[in-house]
């Protein structure tokens, strides 16, 4: 399935994500890494101090689509690409890898690169390469879903 090339909207949306990252550091002194924030809600990472703001952040993420719909009257496109049997497999791998590597697209890709962290540059390069290879295999070697 084709999707429209949206450089301006994507750049602007990215800037809004960046604004959120800067605001979280300016207010709470925290990196806006979603997998790290999720880890603060689950054992063994949870603790009394970090739990409430981590939960509030996640609630904010979840409320974003209802709020967007309320303001604009539209639902954003959220077209699932994986079959129902594959989604929990993908979710497990995504969560496991992000937690093991201490970050995902937000923590390493946005916040880490903005700090010019070598760890985050290496992590981002690595997950981009394996993601490109995975989609190549999925769509052009195994085939079918494209």
């Amino acid at each position: 399935m084709q999707t429209e090339f949206t450089p301006l909207l994507s750049f602007f949306g990215g800037a809004v994500i960046g604004l959120a990252a800067v605001l979280l550091m300016a207010t709470n002194g925290k990196i806006a890494g979603v997998s790290g924030i999720i880890a603060q809600l689950l054992p063994p990472g949870w603790n009394k101090i970090d739990f409430p703001p981590a939960l509030a952040f996640v609630i904010g993420l979840i409320l974003a689509i209802p709020l967007y719909q309320w303001f604009t009257g539209n639902l954003p496109e959220t077209t699932m690409v994986a079959e129902h049997w594959l989604l929990p497999v993908a979710g497990l791998i995504t969560g496991f890898g992000a937690a093991l590597g201490n970050g995902c697209t937000s923590g390493h890709g946005v916040c880490g690169i903005s700090r010019l962290s070598a760890r985050s540059l290496v992590a981002t390069g690595t997950f981009m390469v394996t993601a490109f290879i995975t989609v190549y295999l999925l769509r052009h070697v195994i085939g079918g879903t494209a």
Partner: peptide, 25 residues
């Protein structure tokens, strides 16, 4: 852990097209 974790994360991201932030949203 950093490199292995990132490599595994990329596979999941490619399979589902979802990273943790968008998944929650």
């Amino acid at each position: 852990r950093l490199i292995g974790g990132a490599a595994i994360f990329g596979i999941g991201w490619g399979l589902g097209g979802l990273c943790p932030g968008p998944a929650l949203t």
